[in-house]
Write a protein that binds this DNA or RNA. Sequence first.
DNA 1: TTGTGACTCTAAGTCCGTT
DNA 2: GAACGGACTTAGAGTCACA
Lengths: 67, 67
Amino acid sequence: MDIRIRLGRNVRALREARGWSQEDYADRAGIHRTYVSDIERGRRNPTVTVVEKLAAPLGVTAGALLN
Amino acid sequence: MDIRIRLGRNVRALREARGWSQEDYADRAGIHRTYVSDIERGRRNPTVTVVEKLAAPLGVTAGALLN
DNA sequence: TTGTGACTCTAAGTCCGTT
DNA sequence: GAACGGACTTAGAGTCACA
């Protein structure tokens, strides 16, 4: 399965588990709201530094988001 | 520590453990030799699809390269 | 065998909005 | 709240000659 789809599913599941909206989460991660939306739907191919930003507020490692 | 540095160290360690040159490895991963060189030294900020390409010939998950 | 600067071209990443 | 679109600037993808 495409790694972008896996990343998106992982991010969405963890975000929703915390009860955050995309905008809440985007602010915490320091990433734009629309970009988070695209990533969750597997439409973007983010860099490793963005994966790290995505992981931080979720309290997981960057690697965990890719598996 | 910078995630790009961690990625580079992980890639280099696993590649050398297999006794491959950068060029051998680059061919197996379907990536240019000089690009591998840059990644191992933390000079690039690759996307998740590149991380997946890097992981495949090493027999590890993409996530494992980031931790 | 690996490192480096320079290069072109494409996509990352942001920001505006509407549905 | 989230999906989606367009337009925009910056940075990554990918390659090369050479050290």
